[in-house]
Nucleic acid binder design. Structure first.
Lengths: 210, 210
DNA sequence: CGCGAGGTGTTACCGTCGGTAACGTGACCA
DNA sequence: TGGTCACGTTACCGACGGTAACACCTCGCG
């Protein structure tokens, strides 16, 4: 074989994940097992020996990337800042990551739902579920929300994750849209700016209209 | 043929959509064209003659359901209420719909991304994109947001849609969780309750900690 | 040295899916 | 009667996820 020296199995696994990473970066989250195998210079059965099935590979690959993302989010969540700055920090961290590797991010956030099927743990991808949990825990620990603390924190964790997800998806497609501006927009939304703003004086459609 | 009288083509199309609807309700959004054809008592090529491809069928089916959803959302967005009540009304409308037919809703919100591929128009499903647009338009028309009005409205439309989507997904899986309570939780979030709440006095992890 | 064991790799296949080509069949109309 | 046209079929294609079966290479051990 051309491969010079063969490392042990764990290293080999990392090589395969590198190959999968390259293919997904190039072709998006719908890369086929054949394509990944070809990129690695081998054929399908080897992939299956290492990862069981496509979900196994995707799971391994997702863990790899989400580990760093989760770590950074966790840091941002625990940073000794005022709450507004902390929230901005978390959002900025997320947006920075998805900006730096959009294809990989798409793979993490919008995985091909084929074949995994039964995920009763909600339609958020596993990585985002982890983020949501982290967020819920941080809210419950840091904010005084009264007796409904736990439920509120959990629901809000999910909702905020979905909010930043959708906002980030949209932002990625806006050309020349500064990241810090998007952070402000999302933080402002969370800060109730929509609720606090005045009615539009020239409104034609609101309840003052007619 | 067993079919007694054959209606004209448009009616036939509705019959096929009914069949697809039944299959999706039973098997979820991943129903195969074969299964749908079988449910309708015919074979695949007829489906393809009517709908072009799988996306055509899905699109037709989505329009059918999203039409009513969009109408109701639009009504709620234009209702002559105070803003908070209007927002609650919109969220409640959405949650009521997804509660009444979860499988259909999942089909609308989380379609099988196979084969449609190139949707550079964002990862929100088409139906949700419509909702987001509607929402953005309503915000831009009704709320005084200063010079950044349009950008804010568009970004918030996406973000709020994602927020309610993720929140709704989570809520669907909580047993015995009253809908109006979830509406309040989401509206409170939009109203900045997270931002306004006090720090948790017994916090171990916040910036007062050490 | 011979020889089995086990890991690495292959080819060739299966079932399913979305999608299509080619053909049959009936009603309707000049 | 013969032609046309829509409705329906069977049979197929290529791509996919996944697997069985076999080849090779190397290493430890008598």
């Amino acid at each position: 074989m051309v491969s010079p020296e063969r490392a042990d199995r764990a290293d080999r696994r990392e090589e395969l994940l590198d190959a999968a990473d390259r293919v997904i970066r190039r072709e998006g989250p719908r890369a086929s097992m054949n394509a990944i195998a070809a990129e690695a210079g081998i054929t399908k059965p080897i992939l299956y020996r290492h990862f069981g099935d496509k979900n196994g590979l995707y799971h391994a690959l997702a863990q790899r990337h989400s580990a760093t993302l989760l770590t950074r989010i966790r840091e941002a969540l625990g940073a000794p800042l005022e709450r507004r700055e902390r929230v901005e920090n978390v959002i900025d961290t997320y947006l920075a990551v998805i900006e730096s590797a959009p294809q990989i991010y798409r793979f993490l956030a919008h995985p091909d739902p084929a074949a995994e099927g039964l995920t009763p743990a909600g339609p958020l991808a596993p990585t985002l579920q982890s983020i949501a949990s982290e967020l819920s825990a941080a809210i419950a620990a840091q904010v005084d929300l009264g007796p409904d603390r736990e439920v509120l924190a959990e629901a809000w964790g999910q909702a905020i994750t979905g909010m930043v997800l959708a906002g980030g998806d949209w932002w990625l497609e806006q050309p020349d849209f500064p990241r810090d501006r998007m952070v402000q927009i999302l933080a402002d939304l969370l800060w109730g700016r929509l609720a606090a703003a005045a009615d539009n004086p020239s409104a034609t459609n609101n309840h003052n209209g007619h």
